[in-house]
Design a protein around this nucleic acid. Structure first.
Lengths: 207, 207
DNA sequence: GTCTATATTGTGATAGAC
DNA sequence: GTCTATCACAATATAGAC
């Protein structure tokens, strides 16, 4: 049950986030969202018309959140290593309270590719700008020319995958919640070093 | 429509793979599987009794495939870098024809945690054995003591995430299928180097 | 705006003929 | 073993009272 201080629309949105984040579009049930919000199904349709529209609102919220985080950090003027570390820390802290979001976003494009593509088209942040910046920053700080998409894939992979695969990895190796969180904590140092080391190695190889 | 040379049970299983891999449990429809197999719904139940059981067969197949690949490569006696590279190459080649499998497996534990845990319990390969081997191999080859889980997380992250996130990344940056595949091809060299560089850097730092 | 009741369709599963 | 027909129920969505 969601905080009853909120207006009805907000209550619905908060409930919908909880359910969609956890179950995805196909797995989510309007009834469950209504229960979670402490209202009945009819009101969901009164405010959002359809499951599809409600999902859209939830997805847009999650997407804009992560995009805002990325652009705030990576369009700043800190050294690259600091950016990567800030991103990782902020990301992991957000995820602590909302660990289903990364899966939810990736899952979205598998479940509803057309709808999600339309949502992306509405975003105003230009991701190619970020790649340009990344490329020039690497050239300036490390004196090497590297495909920025590869660096970005590395950053995302090392940051996001361990969060998404957490339930699976925990099950495979029988790791406690605590043990796994400890691993993630260590990665806040380890991942930036890994990526920067690679750039430095490249730097030496080039000269 | 699946190859009509196969027996009915095999036809069903192949059709079920196609549909479940692509849509997951919740998104899949028994009707669609029947159509894909060129038979009717009743036969699905005749052979597999329920959607749950059919899903179980498909999931076990996918899981045992990837586990067999991992253990074949990592329990061999090649140098670590060769193992990582072999894994990445084999993995990416398999994925080329079956690009939904990584998502399907991770998604499974979000959609059906209890069922998937039971399937894991039936697997006979011991993953902790692999971590022990990894740890001792790193100590022998690089003279450093590192938490093998971190190394393994890095290998998996850098190999698997770019496959899972492919539809999303392609959409965000408007990359063609061809361009993205080219990126992946480059990673067959890039990723092993990245991981090995990190170990070498650690080696120097320790001495 | 919010509720109850209901329409409508989708979907897993089974019965029973052949 | 395979099919058609159908059940039983779940799920989205709407009608209409208050």
């Amino acid at each position: 049950m969601v905080n009853s201080q909120l207006g009805t629309e907000e209550k619905i949105l908060e409930a919908a986030k909880k359910v969609f984040h956890r179950k995805g579009y196909e797995g989510a049930r309007m009834q469950e969202i209504a229960d979670e919000a402490g209202i009945n199904k009819a009101l969901l349709h009164y405010y959002f018309r359809s499951k599809e529209k409600l999902f859209e609102a939830v997805f847009e919220d999650a997407l804009s959140g992560i995009m805002r985080l990325v652009s705030t950090i990576f369009f700043s003027d800190k050294p690259l290593k600091d950016k990567i570390q800030s991103f990782l820390c902020s990301y992991l802290n957000i995820i602590t309270e909302n660990s289903y979001i990364p899966w939810f976003i990736i899952n979205g494009i598998y479940e509803r590719p057309e709808q999600i593509k339309a949502i992306f088209d509405k975003q105003d942040i230009n991701p190619l700008q970020l790649m340009k910046l990344l490329k020039s920053q690497v050239r300036k700080e490390y004196g090497v020319d590297i495909n920025p998409f590869q660096i970005w894939l590395n950053v995302l992979s090392l940051s996001v995958f361990p969060v998404i695969a957490k339930p699976l990895v925990r099950e495979i190796f029988r790791l406690s919640e605590e043990t796994y969180n400890q691993l993630m904590e260590e990665r806040k140092e380890l991942v930036p070093e890994l990526i920067i080391n690679a750039l430095k190695a490249y730097e030496k190889g080039e000269n």
